[in-house]
């Protein structure tokens, strides 16, 4: 995949990974869409397509999002609002009854940043473990182990009584 970068490739990456990349960036910043756009423009600036282009995009998006984050306050509040809003838009438009979704997303927000990051990359980004490992600069085994731990923690959070989730933002 090391040919030149063209508009077709950029469009395909935007269509297939734009939503997950924006969700990934929304962990750190409200301006997630801007981060995705800047990452795609940065990709166009490369002389050749990076070897693992999706993993490369996740790295650049994270870098941009963290840059945006610097100097801002109340990080935790923003994380909750931004991630929940990313899912809320879809379910509002589809008119789904989304109690389970709300609980899952709320549990997702209770994870540590590193755990949430790996879940987003794996589930919504569709990255393989070696790509996740390359993005996080850890070994593949470590990436897999962290992913399992994050899923286990998420399951435990979902099995907990709902009274612990009263302070979470509503998605309606």
């Amino acid at each position: 995949m090391n040919g030149p970068i063209d508009a077709e490739l950029l469009g395909r990456l935007l269509d297939e990974h734009g939503a997950a990349l924006a969700l990934y960036a929304s962990q750190w910043t409200d301006a997630a869409d801007d981060c995705v756009q800047e990452a795609l423009i940065e990709l166009a600036r490369q002389p050749q397509v990076p070897e693992r282009v999706v993993a490369w995009l996740y790295r650049v998006v994270k870098h941009r999002a963290l840059n945006t984050l610097r100097g801002e306050r109340r990080r935790r509040d923003r994380e909750s609002r931004a991630m929940a809003a990313r899912f809320a838009e879809v379910y509002q438009s589809l008119g789904h009854k989304h109690d389970e979704s709300v609980a899952a997303i709320a549990a997702l927000e209770d994870l540590d940043a590193a755990e949430r990051e790996i879940i987003v990359m794996r589930i919504w980004g569709g990255l393989k473990f070696d790509e996740i490992a390359a993005t996080l600069a850890v070994s593949t085994t470590t990436a897999h182990r962290h992913y399992e731990q994050a899923l286990g923690k998420l399951r435990r959070l979902l099995e907990m009584p709902c009274s612990t989730n009263t302070n979470r933002p509503k998605m309606n």
Partner: peptide
């Protein structure tokens, strides 16, 4: 994992 995968994040406004 499958339960989470059913959730769909919003497309970016780009």
């Amino acid at each position: 994992e499958r339960q989470l995968a059913r959730l769909t994040p919003a497309a970016p406004r780009i």
